[in-house]
């Protein structure tokens, strides 16, 4: 499958992600004026939109790559890469720059979805960059808009500004210190949406959570940014406190867990995705707080991506049988961890 060749590398924003705030993202959705949304269009109509948008993007983005999502495995692969999500349509078209920080998705649930993703806590920057791109696109296109509702989108959760700002956070301290319930109660009251590792409709696992702005109506763009920043700041502080607490009161217990996780990762012969994720997550935490005998965090991040089902299959040209998946995953972990020594 030739398309995989363009996506052989781990995106830099993922590999060198921030420590507690792994990455920040700003996303706008827009639809072209006077046209039905992709779900209710026939293929020829969707192709017309694709061509129209494609021409403009060609001049806007440097060094881009494109891919048409026409199989389930591609959809899964790009969901693992945080470009699509489980709610994405089966006929989206991806247009992304080389490092995959700037992504345009055409004919997903809306005609156009613009995503800017960068490593670390840089909400201001992704927000400014996304607005900058939207400004250029507004010069090219008339977007579907009405006085009452603002920008018209296929999902009512986007109606209005069509903007969603989000961060992916790595919070093992909070999970290990059993602060989770307290935090969840706080998050439920906050004006944000809590999601799992792969965004919409995904489970919370590997100590990752995604939080994003909730309202696209009745609040200004700047207010959305401020609201999210406040919640992120509170979470960051709690995570740091939890980490200090664990190190002060349960260091040996943590060291024990880390050593056991390393042993499993280095010696397992069969390992499921969830199990590998759980152990890599612990080892990632250990690497962040400077434990010895654990791999470099960049390698762990890389593994976190390539042990996921579609990425693992990609390494074997998608010819991997289901029963061999867990065996090959264990092999990959052993090999990559050995190489580092």
């Amino acid at each position: 499958m030739a398309w995989v060749e363009s996506f052989r590398l781990t995106p830099v924003w993922w590999q060198s992600q921030g420590k507690i705030v792994a990455s920040s993202r700003a996303r706008f959705v827009r639809n072209l004026e006077g046209k039905k949304f992709p779900d209710t269009l026939v293929k020829e109509e969707r192709d017309t939109i694709l061509n129209e948008v494609n021409i403009s993007l060609d001049t806007l983005v440097r060094d881009f790559k494109t891919i048409s999502i026409d199989t389930g495995i591609k959809k899964e692969f790009f969901t693992e890469r945080h470009i699509l999500n489980r709610e994405s349509s089966d006929f989206a078209f991806i247009f992304t720059n080389e490092v995959e920080e700037e992504t345009y998705i055409i004919n997903d649930r809306d005609h156009l979805r613009v995503q800017i993703t960068m490593p670390g806590l840089v909400l201001d920057e992704v927000f400014s960059m996304a607005r900058h791109r939207m400004r250029a696109l507004e010069r090219e296109f008339n977007f579907s808009y009405n006085e009452t509702f603002g920008y018209l989108t296929s999902s009512l959760t986007n109606t209005g500004t069509g903007l969603r700002l989000s961060v992916l956070m790595f919070i093992p301290g909070i999970f290990l210190a059993r602060e989770t319930e307290k935090i969840l109660a706080l998050l439920v009251k906050a004006p944000i949406v809590l999601r799992g590792l792969y965004g919409e409709k995904s489970e919370i696992k590997g100590n990752f959570i995604q939080i994003s702005t909730k309202f696209t109506l009745g609040v200004s763009l700047e207010d959305s940014l401020r609201m999210l920043q406040e919640v992120v700041k509170a979470l960051l502080e709690t995570e740091k406190r939890s980490r200090d607490m664990i190190l002060a009161s349960a260091r040996v217990e943590l060291e024990d867990r880390v050593s056991r996780s390393m042993a499993i990762l280095e010696s397992a012969r069969i390992i499921s995705f969830d199990e590998a994720l759980e152990h890599l997550s612990i080892v990632k935490f250990a690497s962040q707080i400077g434990f010895e005998g654990v791999p470099d965090e960049n390698l762990i991040n890389k593994l976190l991506l390539w042990i996921s089902p579609a990425h693992l299959s990609a390494l074997y040209s998608f010819e991997l049988k289901d029963e061999d998946m867990d065996i090959k995953r264990a092999e990959l972990l052993r090999n990559w961890l050995k190489e580092e020594d």
Binding site: D124, R131, H132, F149, T159, F215, V219
Partner: peptide, 22 residues
Amino acid sequence: QGSSTFSVHEDLKSSEEKDLIV
């Protein structure tokens, strides 16, 4: 969303300078 109308219309032009500096 707790609100049903797009009360805050923002012209992206007004924030261009700020974005460019960032």
